[in-house]
C-alpha cells in the first residue's frame, strides 16, 4: 500500500494526469500555486495553468468566461478567499449563470493554523451550500480526493471542494469508491450516530473508542458529500439509533449540522445535536490548541453523546 499523500500533492499529481488526458481542463490560481504545488506541474501545460495574481473576484469571472468558451476550469485558493472574498462573483457569474466550475478551497476552518483569523473560514461551506444547484464536498483523505478529482470532469454546475492541504491521515483502502450524494458508514453501531467530515473524523474515531468504554456502540458516518446529502442513510441511522451528533470544523450555522438538521427535520425520529464553532472568529494557533479552543475534540463529542445517553 502506498503511504498517504498530502492532499495538495494529490491535486498536483491528479490534475497533471487529467491535463494530459483532456485539453479542455484549465487550472486557475490566485498567487497560491506554490501553496497547493500546482507550480510543479510540467511546463508543457503552462498555457492551461493560469496564475491570475491576487485577484479572486476576477479569477471567478474569468473561470465563468473560460467555461462559456467551452473549457472546464478548476479554481483554487485558500477557503476564505474562494468563498467569502469572491462570493458575489461565485454566486452570480458561476452559480446563477449555471457555469460548470470546480472550486477548490484549501485549509478551511482551523486547518489554516498560523495564518490566523483573517485566513480562517468557518462559513465557507454555509456560503457555498446556499447557492442553488451547488455541490459541496469535504475530503477525508488522499484516496477519496483522487477518486473525486477523477470523477469531476462530469460534474455539472458549481462544485466546491474543501481540503486540508497537508497532514491528512489515511482513512480508506486504496480500492474504496465514492459517490456524490452517498455517505460512507465507517463503523456501524446501534446506540448513537456520529456524523463528520474532514479532520473531524479523526476525533470521531477516538470518541468511538472512548464511548465503547461507556458501553455505547456508536455508528460513524463520513458525510463528505454535504450537498447533496445522503437523506436515506441519515433516515436509516436516525431511525436505528435515535441520536445523531454531528462534528464539524466549521460554524454550526449553515454547515454539516444545519444540513443534517434540515434533512431530518420533517421526520422527528431522532435527537440531533452537533459540535462545531459557535459565534466565533478564527485565531492563530496549531491544530491541537485550536481544537481545544473551539471544542472540536473527541472529548467534546463523547460529552455530547453522554449528555443524551446518561439520562
Amino acid at each position: 500500500m502506498k503511504p498517504p499523500r498530502d492532499l495538495r500533492v494529490v491535486y498536483q499529481e491528479t490534475m497533471h494526469e487529467l491535463l494530459g488526458q483532456n485539453p479542455d481542463i484549465v487550472l486557475l490560481e490566485a498567487d497560491l500555486s506554490s501553496a497547493i504545488t500546482t507550480n510543479k506541474i510540467d511546463a508543457r501545460f503552462s498555457n492551461r495553468i493560469i496564475n491570475c495574481g491576487i485577484q479572486e473576484a476576477n479569477m471567478m469571472g474569468v473561470a465563468a468566461g473560460l467555461n462559456v468558451s467551452g473549457l472546464k476550469p478548476y479554481v483554487h485558493s485558500f477557503a476564505p478567499f474562494v468563498s467569502r472574498r469572491a462570493y458575489d462573483q461565485v454566486f452570480l457569474s458561476i452559480g446563477y449563470a449555471k457555469r460548470d466550475v470546480f472550486i477548490l478551497g484549501s485549509d478551511g476552518g482551523i486547518s489554516t493554523e498560523h495564518n490566523g483569523g483573517t485566513h480562517m473560514s468557518f462559513e465557507d461551506i454555509a456560503l457555498m451550500r446556499a447557492i442553488p444547484g451547488s455541490t459541496v464536498l469535504e475530503m477525508s483523505d488522499d484516496i477519496m480526493f483522487e477518486h473525486i478529482l477523477k470523477q469531476s470532469l462530469s460534474f455539472k454546475g458549481l462544485t466546491y471542494v474543501r481540503i486540508k492541504r497537508r497532514g491528512m491521515k489515511r482513512l480508506y483502502p486504496e480500492d474504496a469508491t465514492f459517490e456524490i450524494g452517498k455517505g460512507n458508514v465507517i463503523k456501524d453501531g446501534c446506540d448513537a450516530t456520529i456524523i463528520a467530515t474532514g479532520i473531524m473524523l479523526e476525533e470521531v474515531l477516538n470518541a468511538h473508542e472512548q464511548l465503547k468504554a461507556h458501553g455505547i456502540d456508536a455508528a460513524i458516518i463520513d458525510m463528505f458529500s454535504i450537498k447533496p446529502i445522503d437523506k436515506s442513510l441519515l433516515f436509516q441511522y436516525a431511525e436505528k439509533t435515535g441520536l445523531i451528533i454531528t462534528a464539524e470544523n466549521h460554524n454550526l450555522v449553515g454547515g454539516l449540522f444545519s444540513a443534517v438538521t434540515e434533512a431530518l427535520s420533517p421526520h422527528k425520529i431522532a435527537i440531533i445535536d452537533g459540535i462545531g464553532v459557535k459565534e466565533s472568529f478564527g485565531q492563530v494557533g496549531l491544530t491541537p490548541y485550536l481544537k481545544e479552543t473551539y471544542h472540536l475534540t473527541a472529548e467534546a463529542i463523547v460529552k455530547k453523546v453522554l449528555s443524551y445517553k446518561n439520562h
Binding site: A63, G65, Q89
Partner: peptide, 21 residues
C-alpha cells in the same frame, strides 16, 4: 452570451472568454 447585472462581473467574464479562445 453572458449573464450580467452585478456591475464589473461581465468584464471579467469577457476577459475569460477571450482567454479561453
Amino acid at each position: 452570451d453572458m449573464t450580467t447585472g452585478s456591475l464589473g462581473q461581465g468584464f471579467s467574464a469577457a476577459v475569460g472568454i477571450a482567454k479561453g479562445l
